[in-house]
Write a protein that binds this DNA or RNA. Structure first.
Lengths: 220, 220
DNA sequence: GCTCTATTACTCTAGCCAGAGTACTTGAAC
DNA sequence: GTTCAAGTACTCTGGCTAGAGTAATAGAGC
């Protein structure tokens, strides 16, 4: 079975593992349990996902009811295959780390396309935003009763741990940039100087090789 | 302008910022620079993305050439609007932290659907895999010459920092589970015991409320 | 000189997913 | 007693994306 990037189908399976539900109830339940913060949820996807699970035989239509003149509600139930698939899929996601392609990692890898001074300023702003959201999270945590079971906060704690690591990383990067301490910064800066002066493309590349010589012959 | 989740269009813009290219050259360049590790790349997406950038006027067709009987190569160039868009978009991605919906965060938030003992074992395996990939990364790092510019390794360093944080988090979680130290574990375990005994759905929920009383009335 | 694999350069298709749109109901406020 | 926001329950559209498929050439090895 192919695992989609989005965990929404898995979330649907786990909800139906609890009890039969209609899609709208799934969405309100997920929302009420704050799953929206860890799982991308919207109606369009939800109904499509439910239909595709049904086609695969992982869920079946139970009953359809109607209250007053409102749209009909279609209640779905988990099949045995669905329960198995849910178990396998969730196990895999817990067990196997998979490459994640985050925005910031991509941005870092393309950072060379803007001049170092600008990048530095943007990273300072990022740091500020990260620290703010971190302290907001701490605030929310502080407002939760002491005896609230940690189990229900686990995904938030994980996100928070990653955020702390990102803060430490960006903080160090900012400091390194401020002190011109990052290896390769001269090339990076020179590229943008040349471009400012009207040199671009192959021509600029040639000039860089001339100026920096062997240093440009890495390519791991 | 709407930012797609995938950074591929941005990568295309930054490549054309360097010099005009045809799509196939973009893909080989990205691959050669190890950008595949931070940016999801495949042909289907690449050609679609290039076409959509063209439609938006961010890039234009330069020349088309043909060598022998091979398929024609269409070379694209960045427009001024494209350069502006690239700059804005990359700035945004560096500046604004955005929610990331990782697999593992989703898996943690749905972990309740499998029994605690199983989850513990899966997390142990995850930890092992994480440690392995961490030491592999260290190995690769060690094989790189000392004077290799850190700037070109920055996204790998970021990924590595996050991985270290995940290792620390999972390690602690495993220990907590081993010592029955995580708040809410009794409810979690009991849910699966009841299910084993044939109680599910509303019935099980009622029983849980009976047994655990007030403890189940959180919902932040 | 013939086969086999790798490389070059795309094209096609089906499914996924986000966001906006629809249409009805309930309850609160003035 | 009527308006207006919020809630209920979906449907539609169109863009995005992954993976497989195609079709030619170049070079390595026997």
């Amino acid at each position: 079975m192919k695992r989609p990037a989005n965990a929404l189908p898995l979330a649907v399976l786990t909800l139906l593992f609890e009890k039969p539900m209609h899609p709208y109830e799934m969405s309100t339940t997920l929302r009420q349990r704050n799953k929206e913060e860890s799982i991308r949820l919207n109606y369009g996807s939800l109904y499509a996902v439910v239909e595709s699970l049904r086609k695969k035989g992982l869920i079946v239509v139970g009953e359809t009811t109607r209250e007053g003149n409102r749209p009909e509600r279609t209640v779905y139930e988990l099949t045995d295959e669905g329960a198995t698939a849910m178990h396998e899929w969730l196990s895999e996601m817990l067990r196997d780390p998979s490459p994640q392609f985050t925005d910031f990692e991509a941005a870092l890898s393309l950072m060379g396309a803007i001049p170092p001074e600008e990048a530095l300023e943007l990273l300072r702003l990022r740091l500020k935003a990260l620290r703010l959201s971190s302290s907001q999270y701490e605030g929310v945590l502080a407002s939760i009763p002491e005896d609230f079971p940690a189990f229900f906060l686990i995904e938030g704690e994980y996100a928070s741990a990653l955020r702390q690591a990102e803060i430490a990383f960006v903080d160090k990067l900012v400091t390194d940039l401020e002190h011109d301490r990052l290896g390769g910064m001269q090339v990076w800066r020179r590229i943008h100087e040349l471009r400012e002066a009207g040199h671009a493309g192959e021509e600029a590349t040639a000039k860089l090789h001339e100026e920096f010589g062997g240093l440009l012959h890495w390519d791991i």
